[in-house]
Design a protein around this nucleic acid. Sequence first.
DNA 1: TCAAAAGTGTTCACCGTACACCCATGG
DNA 2: CCATGGGTGTACGGTGAACACTTTTGA
Lengths: 231, 231
Amino acid sequence: MIQKYKNEEKVLVAVDCIIFGFDQQDEELKILLIKRNFAPEKGKWSLMGGFLHADETLKDAATRILHSLTGLHNVYLEQLKAYSEIDRDPVERTISVTYYALINIEAHDVELIKKNSARWFKMSNCPKLIFDHNEMVNDAIERLRYRASTQPIGFELLPVKFTMRQLQKLYEEIMDEKLDKRNFTKKINSFNILEKLKEKNKKSSKKGSFLYKFNQQKYQQKIKNGFGFKI
Amino acid sequence: MIQKYKNEEKVLVAVDCIIFGFDQQDEELKILLIKRNFAPEKGKWSLMGGFLHADETLKDAATRILHSLTGLHNVYLEQLKAYSEIDRDPVERTISVTYYALINIEAHDVELIKKNSARWFKMSNCPKLIFDHNEMVNDAIERLRYRASTQPIGFELLPVKFTMRQLQKLYEEIMDEKLDKRNFTKKINSFNILEKLKEKNKKSSKKGSFLYKFNQQKYQQKIKNGFGFKI
DNA sequence: TCAAAAGTGTTCACCGTACACCCATGG
DNA sequence: CCATGGGTGTACGGTGAACACTTTTGA
């Protein structure tokens, strides 16, 4: 039998999730936060997190944590960074690895988030969070911006059918800047990954705007060939 | 006293360093690897690593590990990613966080690397490494490419005085493609972060090429203002 | 009929890229 | 004097950015 690393110190490893959603009602980018009902910092807002178990990878843990809060499977997840300041958690030395998740805000389990005392916050109105969680959120937005400018990441956040305006609004929220609709449409179309449907969405205007759907096949093709995506 | 997280499982956390250097003799990008003189996989090539101690951050650990191998202080270090496959280390469950380091290959302590049975390998000729270390190296190169195309990172790898040709060769090694020297010079000069010296380096040609030096002040300024660096 | 959002092309400036010749020097 | 690498400028095409009017339809 192979000898173990006997003299090394073990530490607690946590996983925290920065969960992004795009609220189609008010067209705003939001993050899902929980009100802690346990010590320390009980009653304060926090990212959803948990400890890494011995039988799972970090991504497994993030998936489990995400599922326990939203009821969702198959969520877009990307590892961000490990945080390791000695006293970041006042209870005990804990390092935390963050993942950010992109979910369709309409699809999550409303009961579950109630049970977890969770709530969606506008990105632009993020409350003070426990520990180093605000730093984590800031790092996540930065990464989200980078990803969104490199890949058509936004699709994870929208329903299956969406309008060009919704897609543009989403990008504007992520990038935190206004975009020109003619240039935006042109650019998106040039990637040739959308399918224009015959249906219109009439909620947002009298004229109504055409719905689009994401062409998975063309998209996967592009991913393989490295995209030239750049917003 | 605050209660501890009693029922949670702790794990071993390692830090592994991908150490890049630019060899000015043969103008090649290299990485520093060690031959393990301990089990498991004794005698195999590996990244330099170690376990995280209770009283240090991940970056502290990376700094300590790097110093123990190279004798260098104040090295450029950037966290890459956490690796957490259950059996990645066959001895015991260990998650590893990688850092990549950029060092001036001329400045390291030759005795120390001998003592650690370490050796510089051409990037293009990286041997098979233990565990998931090859994957770590590949991820590190990818990140290095991104950084180098975004910031003038190459300076960390060169001596204080260097020629435009050396800088270009370095970028060619990192990007793994030939660059046009007129365009390269033009681009670098446009950033206005170099200081052209009166001296020439005559080693590489009869005419000799002018030496440059990095203008720290202008550079810091640029960093603050977000650079427009793009190679 | 009017208000409100959707849809659609063109022009211009700038940047990245391609490309070739002369210069200085040591041997 | 010649071989070797160093240094320099221009022309072209493509892409990003700015910009305004017409269409549809519910109220």
